[in-house]
Write a protein that binds this DNA or RNA. Sequence first.
DNA 1: CGGCAGGTGCGGA
DNA 2: TCCGCACCTGCC
Length: 278
Amino acid sequence: LTWQGEAIGIRYEDAGTLWKPRVRLSLWSRKRLARSFVSGLVEELLYRRNMHLDLSEFYRIARKDKALAGCIDRLPGMRPSNRASLYEYLMVAIVLQNTSVKRSVQMMQRMFETYGETLVFDSRALCAFWRPDRLDEVGEDELRALKVGYRAKSIKRVSEAFARGVVDEACMRQVPLEQVRRAVLDLYGVGPASAGYILFDVFHGLGELDYLPPFELKVLSAVVFGTEPSKPVAPDRLLTFFERFGRFKMLAAHYLWEDVFWRRHEGEAAWLDALIRL
DNA sequence: CGGCAGGTGCGGA
DNA sequence: TCCGCACCTGCC
């Protein structure tokens, strides 16, 4: 992670129990870190990882639904957790657009290799993001050579906006979500799908669900209504279903989503494989 | 080898 | 506001 221009290696360890959760944090850095730097970083991580989120109200509402109750039992305490800054998340969101997971991974990999910074710590090597101004100065054709396709234009334009300092993430956390939505939609290459992810993952808008892209529709329709993955219900029908979770609409969808992917990981829900095309 | 994939901007109705 | 269309690339 890059925080205030410093590249930091981070290890999280489970150091508690379900009822007394604790996370032990280890940090690696080139320079000795000031106490104030570390406390600022910890505060940021607490925010990004949604550590302060109290799920009890959501659980009270969601337990009324049988499918959600099952998810809560299997994933108690689970919360949306984001590791990226707004800028970094935007880079991922753009790379995910209108393509397969496999290609998104390739695009991200090539951008990390070319512009990222590899950090070796804790006996592993991980890549940190580049700074926005680094991509602001490269040509669109140079980016296209990394096989990102027409997304090169969005990557450049978003990087330019951040390099010019016209987007202030800290400030956006303080304003109403509708204002944040308009601000991110103003960025070139951000549409309803990307804005939805950002409002939920980056700005913790737990009720942000008013658009379902094709892949999400197929998976959630199968989970909620038991449809064939290739024959999902109409988006509006699914959106209506989630209305019952009120200000936790997207969190409910997130629970169903994480649960089915976790079950796939455990060898169940094999029908997902055909959809994913890794 | 055309169609399509975890969308979006744009022009025109 | 809504709709149709083009768009990089790689795999089926």
